[in-house]
Amino acid sequence: MMEKQAVSWVVERHEEIEALINRYPERRSAVLPLLHLAQEARGYLATEDVEAVAELVGMTPSEVTGIVSFYSLLHRQPRGRYTLTLCQNLPCVLAGAEALAQHLRQRLGIAPGETTPDGLLTLEETHECLAACDGAPVVQVNLEYATHMTPEKVDRLLEALRAASQEAAAPDGEEDDAGGL
């Protein structure tokens, strides 16, 4: 076997990983929890993450790739710091979700599935109801809900995300060379 550099989350979160795997009667069941963990560590799933998960649960990397491609919350490409997901199912559409989508595409200058050039935000439009129809139209930001959205509220949300991101980047100053916004 070739010597391979271990992926950092596998080393750093070793105990947590073992506990996760031990929760299940069969190791394979830990594949989604481990993929969530890996994606949380890197922001997306690189090939080495897929390989590491495969080894941990006793699958082939191609099996794991087939699993990743099945689920909409798992990503093989780098993402923005925030993922903004707009619900486009019926209750939200009845409450103006399509106009909201139009507004966001124009405001951000990107299409659904794309990331802003500064890496701040990935825009997603989902047809799967987000189960918050009493707050339609609804948006999730990194899976946190924002309800009763309007173009004005979305604009304020974007401002808040930009501010939070600049604040987070300010102390070490290394990440913040994107400029622009």
Partner: peptide, 9 residues
């Protein structure tokens, strides 16, 4: 055990 799905109706 709480098992999180990953987005699939």
């Amino acid at each position: 055990v709480v098992h999180r799905g990953a987005g699939a109706y």
